[in-house]
Computed example of a mutant assay.
Amino acid sequence: MATVPSSSPTPTDAPEASSLAASGRRVFAVEIDALAAVAARLDGEFSAACRLMLEARGRVVCTGMGKSGHIARKIAATLASTGTPSFYVHPGEAAHGDLGMITDADVVLALSYSGESDEILLLLPVLKRQGNKLIAMTGRAQSSMARESDVHLDVSVPAEACPLALAPTSSTTASLAMGDALAVALLEARGFTAEDFARSHPAGALGRRLLLHITDVMHIGDDIPAVGPDATITEALVEISQKRLGMTAVVDAERHLLGLYTDGDLRRSLDDPGLDIRTTRIAEVMTRSPRTIDAGALAVEAAQLMETHKISGLLVVDADQRVVGALNIHDLLRARVV
């Protein structure tokens, strides 16, 4: 019975590790050369593209087919998260109704290394009639897309990293880097800050660090452990146990902070043979002028304060030094600030 040949070649000998690593290094070398070549060509066209995006009354609509489409999606995501409203539209879907997503206030950024993508070329007359500005990112300055665009970004590369010169490799890397260059240039031109970035990423680690305030995580009202200065150590222990924050504030009748008593202070009190925890007033053993934090501070500031001073809890006070809240390291862990 005749054997059916495999659809893909199978090497007779497994390649050596050194050969695989050499192939990898060659790809890096080829793509580094490609990026250097594209960077050397950044000129007035790049600046013009940035100006079109900055002046747009609408959004930047990115589009591309195949591998260029994947890069266009990533560019749209990067632009959107760095202060330039943007989204991706599949050119094939655009020709079947999604073109309605693009308004006359939008700028279109179209990617095609050949500059001859049929799906994109089909859209150009409609976009031009609508009044959209077009930025084309191609590898051929004389391509149809380049000629029809308002601004052309040349991402041509000396060679693809693929040894067959078939799979988009260096060219997609160059397009991706060009997209990053646009996003960063626009970010800097807009004065975009880390706080602005956090507002676009509220669920991310940076968002939590820059947006979460003490008031979002602290215990308030009856959940704040507090005793008066005449309370005994035993009474303070009961308060610490009930509120489960490992500490209690010592306050006067108006809730002004007088001191702090913690689990650690309790252990030291128990080690003192001359001290009766049932009769000793908390004012005699409390820590005066403890570390505190303002209610308007960020939660990450509390984490930094705890780490710096090797403490596990903080009292939150207002401008008049009244205790308005309390938190410990576990509250910050639950909020994923640390």
Results as ranks from 00 to 15, higher is better:
A21W: 14
A136Q: 11
A231D: 04
I120F: 08
G100P: 01
T10D: 05
H201W: 13
R208P: 06
G97M: 07
A189Y: 06
H309D: 14
S149K: 03
G131H: 13
D180N: 08
R51G: 07
R57Q: 15
G139M: 01
V107F: 07
G191H: 08
A80G: 11
R322I: 02
V61G: 04
G204L: 11
N328I: 03
G246S: 04
G83M: 00
P290R: 03
G228Y: 05
L35G: 04
T12K: 14
D216T: 08
P202E: 11
K74Y: 04
S175C: 08
Q242H: 15
L127C: 12
A295D: 13
A159P: 02
K243Y: 11
E55N: 12
A194K: 11
A34H: 00
P158D: 05
V316H: 06
S171K: 03
T63E: 06
E93P: 05
H70Y: 13
T63H: 07
A76Y: 07
P168N: 02
V89G: 01
S170L: 00
A76Q: 02
V4P: 02
L186P: 02
D216G: 10
R267A: 13
L245F: 03
D118F: 07
E307S: 14
L245I: 07
D272F: 08
G83S: 02
V89H: 01
A205C: 12
L260P: 01
Q130F: 13
Y88R: 04
M247L: 15
P85G: 06
K74V: 07
M137V: 14
G64C: 07
G296H: 12
T292I: 14
I214C: 12
N132I: 09
D276F: 06
C50Q: 05
I233D: 00
T138F: 05
P158W: 05
M1W: 10
S18Q: 14
T280H: 05
G259P: 03
I240T: 05
A110E: 04
A94D: 01
V250P: 00
G97W: 05
R140L: 11
A249L: 01
G139E: 01
A22L: 13
S8R: 14
A226D: 01
S81N: 10
L122W: 12
V184H: 11
L124Y: 15
G100W: 04
T63I: 11
A95R: 03
L124C: 13
